[in-house]
């Protein structure tokens, strides 16, 4: 699902299928790194809240927005994380 995404520790993302590159924020890097490592979309808000000291609702909204952005950019399939 994410094999085509090469993500560096600094947040530089390279889509090996399209050649497009992106720069992610620290939290974006954290979220995508978690997914690439095998984490699920369902557990992301909890992990985000625990790591970045935000409340659960903010974390849930941020993950949702992140999901929309990845799909909008064609980095993940539309059904992922639904």
């Amino acid at each position: 699902m994410y094999e085509h995404l090469a993500l560096s520790d600094s947040g530089f993302l390279f889509d090996t299928r399209t050649g497009n590159t992106y720069t992610l924020s620290k939290t974006g890097t954290f979220l995508l790194r978690t997914l690439i490592a095998g984490g699920t979309w369902q557990e992301l808000p909890t992990q985000l809240a625990a790591t970045y000291e935000v409340d659960d609702e903010t974390a849930r909204r941020d993950v949702e927005q992140f999901s929309f952005r990845l799909k909008d950019l064609g980095l993940v399939a539309p059904e992922v994380g639904s």
Binding site: H4, T16, G19
Partner: peptide, 8 residues
């Protein structure tokens, strides 16, 4: 340019 790897 940059090389890409796309099975399709």
């Amino acid at each position: 340019g940059v090389t890409i790897a796309d099975p399709q």
